[in-house]
């Protein structure tokens, strides 16, 4: 019992909000042409040695540095020139450099997205995205911060506004989304949350909002951008003093970073680096992702 660990994490956001590349992402204004697939294979690495316990920034000698790694397969499929399907299958594993908490690993949550270009006028475009995710395995959701995910099913609606200067490729992009997250079941049948005991194994995971602004250059063979992102649960409770995190926590994070891509022909590379600047109930992580991209026709002509 005396779990001395304590901490917070970034894992849940691995797929949807954090750690992944931005090649034909659910966030951007880039589309695969009809009949084309871009297959991305990515490795993500995120680590923190300080976290916000509620609003208190702290370290934890019994966790040391907490590391989350993932590999992900992510195809983006051009259904039409303005409708893309994006899928993601992540495998995630965690560890700490100190203490004795057993690392967890497994397939996390499968996610799927439909991205549609609603308007496109002289470089200004509006895009609607709907997406959802479901856990692929029966991983433990409340052994935080070691759990690889939270077991919630999610449904997300997102709007993207983008302006690309046609001559230079300079772009400014903003998005906002709302994610509904399902209740989950935990192994225990009573838990402490919202300052009381719940005598059930059913846990409410708070819904979340994420937003982002990015400024960059998009050329036919390369792309470079700077971004800032904000993730926040719409409600939830705070980690109590020296307590462990729990799926009901109101996680908040503001991240800044850089993203780049080179894809001269079919084969390409991308990389992303991000740093959490400010947060609540979350780790202050550095994260990076590197990916290999491969674009091809899925219908033979």
């Amino acid at each position: 019992m005396r779990r001395k660990l304590i901490g917070c994490l970034v894992l849940l956001v691995v797929v949807l909000y954090g750690n992944v590349a931005r090649a034909q992402m659910p966030h951007d204004a880039i589309y695969m042409p009809k009949k084309q697939i871009c297959l991305a294979g990515m490795y993500g690495h995120s680590r923190w040695n300080q976290y916000w316990e509620g609003s208190l920034k702290r370290e934890n000698f019994n966790l040391g540095t907490h590391t989350t790694q993932s590999v992900m397969l992510m195809p983006a499929i051009g259904i039409t020139d303005r409708l893309n399907v994006i899928l993601a299958v992540p495998y995630v594993w965690t560890r700490t450099s100190a203490g004795n908490l057993l690392g967890q690993e497994g397939f996390q949550d499968f996610s799927g997205w439909l991205k549609y270009k609603v308007l496109d006028f002289r470089g200004l475009s509006l895009h609607g995205v709907v997406g959802g995710s479901i856990p692929m395995g029966n991983y433990v959701p409340d052994f935080l911060p070691m759990s690889i995910g939270m077991q919630a099913k999610t449904a997300t609606g997102r709007l993207i506004v983008n302006y690309t200067h046609p001559a230079t490729g300079l772009y400014l992009n903003g998005h906002g989304s709302y994610s509904w997250r399902s209740k989950i079941r935990v192994d225990r049948d009573a838990y402490q949350a919202h300052d009381r005991v719940y005598n059930t194994n059913e846990v409410g995971v708070p819904n979340a909002i994420d937003m982002g602004v990015r400024l960059g250059v998009l050329k036919p063979k390369w792309q470079l951008e700077a971004f800032t992102e904000r993730f926040s649960c719409v409600d939830g409770d705070y980690i109590r003093r020296n307590d462990m995190p729990f799926p009901t926590n109101k996680m908040e994070m503001t991240t800044a970073g850089l993203y780049g891509k080179i894809q001269p022909k079919q084969l390409g590379l991308n990389a992303r680096v991000g740093r959490v600047l400010e947060g609540r109930n979350a780790g202050q992580s550095w994260s990076y992702t590197v990916g290999v991209l491969y674009q091809f026709n899925y219908l033979k002509k």
Partner: peptide, 14 residues
């Protein structure tokens, strides 16, 4: 793991 978690009754439990 389920049995270990169900009976853990650790920090923050009664």
């Amino acid at each position: 793991a389920r049995i270990a978690n169900y009976w853990a009754d650790g920090v923050g439990s009664y």
